[in-house]
Amino acid sequence: MAVPMAEAVSKAVGLSKHVTGPAGDLTILQGLDLEIQTGEAVAILGASGSGKSTLLGLLAGLDNPSAGQIWLCGQALEGLDEDGRAALRGGRVGFVFQNFQLLPNLTARENILLPLELTGSDEASRRADEALERVGLMARAGHYPRQLSGGEQQRVAIARAYAPWPQVLFADEPTGNLDQATGEQIIDLLLDLRRQTDAALVLVTHDPRLAERCDRRLRMSGGRLEQQS
């Protein structure tokens, strides 16, 4: 499979997504094109139900498009089964979610260790500690998610996302569940770590302050993307 551009970590061409619901066929994405370069931070904005999260899921290989092609980390997703896509994500793609998505019965450190171990890294333990250190939660390494505040949980999620040094990080409303001050801290942390790791960042957000700090802003509307200044 040909690699479209050496610098593009994520690319979509003619991307469409239709679903069949009780009310009939529904088009979520319609012939959408997108390219995200290495180290670039892109914010995707849009109203609720505009298809932002669907796009994120498709770009990350979590779902199949109805039409169009997607490349992730230089590899086409077309033709890959779910396991092939999982193997592609392992260690190269990070995720941060609005509701943190930490495993409730693993400690902060164990949550960070898990993706490192999945990559088969020999240095999983050291790198997990480094990641904890970077997000300033070394002292809470042995705590369970329920013992941490919302901001702390999101910091653990960020540490988990960056610990394997991914090429691209997808974030779905990372500050959606946090107060303004904590949200600011989380934005700082996300962008700092992006700089340190040179990973691309694809952000789905409602938060204009967060979007402002990204290199590019795209707005979802009617199943298409529009560039915002």
């Binding site: 779910e82 999982a86 994500r89 260690g91 998505q101 409730p104």
Partner: peptide
């Protein structure tokens, strides 16, 4: 949920 996260993090089937 935990399995979905593991799948998301790249754990193969």
């Amino acid at each position: 949920d935990a399995v979905a996260i593991l799948r998301c993090l790249g754990a193969p089937h």
